[in-house]
């Protein structure tokens, strides 16, 4: 017997979040390289220290890391990480190639992600990891 009404005014609807966008691009990488390289999205808890910029108010914020892994090499490269507020999604803070950037909304975040992925730095890393992974794949060498 229910003792109270369900107060959750919840609609089963998936919205596009920063994580959705990152996950899509991670999956595209895996698909494009036929699994030689794997795009991974990893959640970490980020502790907001005293003196942190006013962007965030909670002490613990989710930090989302975009990794490129080579299962054959047993190796992972962190391409970028994104810090955001679960309540608002935007603005978000992005760590990429030694810089810290901010995206105000979904549109600017998508544009930034595209620039990161198509940057010379990223292209070089992908090409290098892919080529070396293929060598080991062909030599059939174990990971360790």
């Amino acid at each position: 017997m229910e003792t109270s009404k369900n107060y959750w005014d919840f609609v089963d609807e998936i919205i596009v979040t920063p994580v959705t966008i990152l996950k899509e691009q991670a999956d595209f990488l895996t698909k494009t390289t036929k699994g030689i390289l794997v795009g991974e999205i990893v959640f970490e808890k980020k502790i907001i220290e005293e003196g942190y910029p006013k962007l965030y108010t909670n002490k613990f914020q989710p930090n989302v890391v975009f990794n490129i892994s080579s299962p054959i090499l047993g190796y992972t490269y962190q391409l970028m990480s994104v810090l955001y507020d679960v309540k608002e999604n935007y603005p978000i803070q992005i760590n990429f190639d030694n810089g810290i950037y901010e995206a105000k909304d979904e549109e600017s975040f998508k544009k930034f992600i595209q620039e990161c992925i198509q940057s010379d730095t990223t292209k070089k890393i992908i090409q290098n990891l892919y080529s070396q992974s293929k060598v080991f794949e062909n030599n059939n060498q174990p990971k360790d």
Binding site: K46, I47, G51, P53, N63, Q78, L83, I100
Partner: peptide
């Protein structure tokens, strides 16, 4: 880690925490 010449103290704190978390992971 990034130099104090190119990063504020606040940003260094963010960065340091990220790095320490990643090492732990």
């Amino acid at each position: 880690l990034p130099s104090k010449l190119y990063m504020t103290d606040n940003d260094q704190i963010i960065h340091q925490t990220n790095v320490a978390n990643l090492i732990n992971t």
